[in-house]
Nucleic acid binder design. Structure first.
Length: 100
DNA sequence: CCTATGACCATAG
DNA sequence: CCTATGGCCATAG
């Protein structure tokens, strides 16, 4: 099955809605976009974002709170700029995960 | 159609 | 904490 245009927008929309100083997991985003189980696809879409995108891609971490983005330094710097303190490349979901 | 490759995840050891 | 395993979805060759 190939993804539809709306399914992509739904993912982007959820990511765009992540509040500042909060993070969301790949799986969480997929579920909130009505596509539970497609966490892998979320990562794929993020990897294709244009460099100048305004989407807060830096607020996305894995289920363990780990920063898995290839551009680790930039993501960590952006999180710190928002007041989040990653420890050993990891964000404490207990304190910073977005829970609408 | 098949295999390989990911910014994934849950579970088990 | 770590690695291994099986499952997941989409894309590229």
């Amino acid at each position: 099955m190939h993804p539809t245009e709306e399914s992509q927008q739904a993912i982007w929309q959820v990511i765009a809605a992540i509040p500042e100083s909060r993070v969301a997991t790949y799986g969480q985003i997929a579920a909130m976009a009505g596509q539970a189980g497609k966490s892998r696809w979320v990562g794929q879409l993020l990897s294709r974002l244009p460099r100048e995108t305004r989407l807060p891609w830096h607020r996305v971490v894995n289920a363990s709170g780990r920063i898995t983005n290839p551009n680790f330094d930039l993501q960590q710097a952006r999180l710190i700029a928002e007041g989040i303190e990653p420890r050993g490349g990891r964000v404490l979901l207990k304190d910073h995960q977005w829970r609408p």
